[in-house]
């Protein structure tokens, strides 16, 4: 099935999604890799509301044009590095959609079920194509501290996809089906 949803996804929409479905999303997403995950888990206050956004495992290539940030290339980074954070991250921030690549492990699979979230795969390396779907850069946090790839960038996206539902909220993982 193919779906076009707005971010944040509702609980019903998340539950509707099954492994193998194709999804396109419109709304606000934030990027977070290892450093931003760690920082956000340790912080009492976060400068933005992750529950209203989708989480994008991505370290984008950005450039500043006339003091405004633009996305040059922004594909996903390898999600498995975030496995050590993700269950606690979902417990704390209640994000309903993760965009990454390569898949995640058992801990995240359980958390997706418990916290009602879905993990989707965007084509790794397709950075120019992804950048084309970003309408606006709404902001950036932790840039000074962590640098361009590890900062939390906030993007407004339109029809961002195709995202493949790779791990759903019903304890299914496309990656397990393949290796079995």
């Amino acid at each position: 099935m193919e779906y076009h949803f707005n971010i944040p996804l509702s609980v019903d929409e998340v539950k509707k999604l099954k492994v193998g479905d194709i999804l396109y999303v419109t709304g606000t997403i934030f990027t977070a890799r290892d450093e931003a995950h760690h920082k956000m888990l340790e912080s009492k206050k976060i400068p933005f509301d992750p529950s209203k956004m989708a989480l994008f495992h991505c370290g984008p290539l950005m450039k500043k044009v006339n003091s405004k940030w633009q996305v040059v290339s922004a594909g996903p980074t390898t999600s498995s590095r975030m496995e050590i954070f993700e269950d606690r991250f979902l417990d704390k921030f209640h994000t309903r959609l993760i965009i990454g690549k390569g898949g995640m492990g058992e801990r995240t699979k359980k958390a997706l079920h418990k916290d009602i979230c879905v993990y989707t795969s965007y084509t790794g390396g397709a950075g120019a194509l992804a950048a084309d779907k970003v309408e606006e850069v709404l902001g950036v946090y932790y840039l000074e501290e962590f640098g361009m790839p590890e900062a939390a960038w906030i993007f407004k996206v339109k029809d961002f996809g195709p995202l493949v539902v790779a791990m759903d909220s019903h304890n299914n993982s496309i990656y397990e089906n393949i290796t079995k």
Binding site: G20, I22, C58, G59, P60, L61, V72, S73, A74, G75, T77, T123, G125, A126, G127, A128, L129, A131, D132, P162, V164, I174
Partner: peptide, 29 residues
Amino acid sequence: KGVAKTQIDAILKNIDLAKKTKRPMCQDT
């Protein structure tokens, strides 16, 4: 076929776009 084809399709479109716009094809340069 299916999902696999969607991935290769995105890759080929991305290669085309990167070449036309002279942008790095992947953010990890």
